[in-house]
């Protein structure tokens, strides 16, 4: 969270809305600890990260969807995916749970 405060301030001062994506649980091998945070502005800018880069793109999609929709928080799970070469998943074999919500609290 600490490392994305400046980005949040900047985007908000530009009148942008911000979505927060935060790792709130992990199982097995996972690249980042709970608390790892990524923020996404409504114009699609990104700061921070929630994994080693495996699921960031999917989280950005969720974040923009949350901002465009009813604004309710959602919990997204990402695990190992081997059924499709380019499916979203962690290659390390672990699972992470990411809370995605508008930063309006």
């Amino acid at each position: 969270m600490r490392e994305v405060l400046a980005d949040i301030d900047r985007w908000r001062s530009q009148g942008k809305r911000v979505a927060l994506a935060r790792v709130v649980g992990t199982e097995g091998s996972s690249p980042r600890l709970p608390g790892a945070t990524m923020v996404v502005s409504d114009s699609g800018e990104v700061a921070g990260s929630v994994s080693g880069g495996c699921v960031e793109a999917a989280v950005v999609t969720e974040a923009l969807d949350v901002l465009a929709g009813d604004g309710r928080p959602r919990l997204c799970s990402f695990g190992y995916s081997d059924d499709e070469a380019f499916a979203v998943g962690l290659t390390c074999g672990g699972t992470i749970r990411v809370m995605v919500e508008p930063l309006e609290w």
């Binding site: 969270m1 600490r2 405060l5 709130v24 309710r72 928080p73 919990l75 749970r97 809370m99 919500e101």
Partner: peptide, 21 residues
């Protein structure tokens, strides 16, 4: 966080829909 003072953030991540978040 800016003042480097201790703080905790608590969020409901499992449970009834009206408490979630």
């Amino acid at each position: 966080l800016r003042a480097e003072e201790p703080v905790a953030l608590v969020e409901v991540v499992e449970g009834p829909e009206d408490l979630f978040g």
